[in-house]
Write a protein that binds this DNA or RNA. Structure first.
Lengths: 129, 129
DNA sequence: TGTATATTTGCAACAAAATTGCATTAAGCA
DNA sequence: TGCTTAATGCAATTTTGTTGCAAATATACA
């Protein structure tokens, strides 16, 4: 079986996730590592983290891909919670408490869910933009 | 005020949308126009159509961007319905009837919603893949 | 602690997707 | 029909993500 190793680059990326309250894009993460490793390496670390369910991938309404650390008490197969994508500051945050309810047509098999709301986050709403 | 013109390219793109039951990517649309216009023009037409709320933009779980014509009887500001993204055939279809219900935290202002389910569509489910 | 081995990484090259600037074309109105 | 301005084509560029392979290094185990 393929085991996953704890490298310095991976540790650094995890630390970055720990410090950030919002979801981060590959580019943002790469910049925050400050030339610790190659661009490609960051892509591969993210792939592994997503695979190991340590981080989850979020796609914004505009198509931008971001990543955020999961806060599940236990591992889950479906990340059934909403994300908020702010149109002003472009930040994406997890709304862990917002779970959508819906009725699936019976002839579809659902494996994953992406529920993203966009608009203005509390910060930008206060700034009256 | 900026007016929107009905060009041959725009008409062709709209016709393509009319014929398609699933959402289409920029590349697919461009190919279907069969060299009627430049790749860039297709991007710009799609931008305009999205802006005019004639077409809406759908982002798949993998980050792929697709477009579909809206079928609203009346113009709406929020496209509050689900989309289904098939992992096998990669098609994205609108599930017009599936409307998510959810509770928004009061300090957020929601302008748009993206609710995408992914898994296997009825076709691929039948093929036992 | 040292060594074997399989995972990670860096580098370079590539591919796809999207954007921008500018000169030219054409849609729609008077 | 002619005028104004939106729309287009083209070329160049940026951004984003992928792949192959040799070198580096984390981990298990003797």
């Amino acid at each position: 079986m393929k085991t996953t190793r704890n490298t310095t680059a991976k540790t650094a990326v995890l630390e970055i996730f720990g410090k950030s309250k919002t979801a981060l894009s590959h580019t943002e993460i790469y910049k925050l590592t400050a030339d610790l490793c190659d661009r490609v390496t960051v892509y591969r670390i993210l792939d592994r983290l997503v695979n190991d369910d340590i981080v989850h991938k979020i796609v914004g309404l505009d198509g931008t891909v971001k990543y955020a650390k999961c806060h599940h008490a236990h591992p889950v197969t479906i990340h059934n919670h909403a994300h908020f994508s702010c149109e002003n500051c472009l930040e994406i945050t997890c709304l862990e408490s917002v779970k959508p309810s819906y009725i699936i047509p019976h002839n579809y098999k659902v494996n994953d869910i992406n529920f993203t709301l966009s608009g203005l986050c509390p910060n930008c709403l206060n700034s009256n933009i």
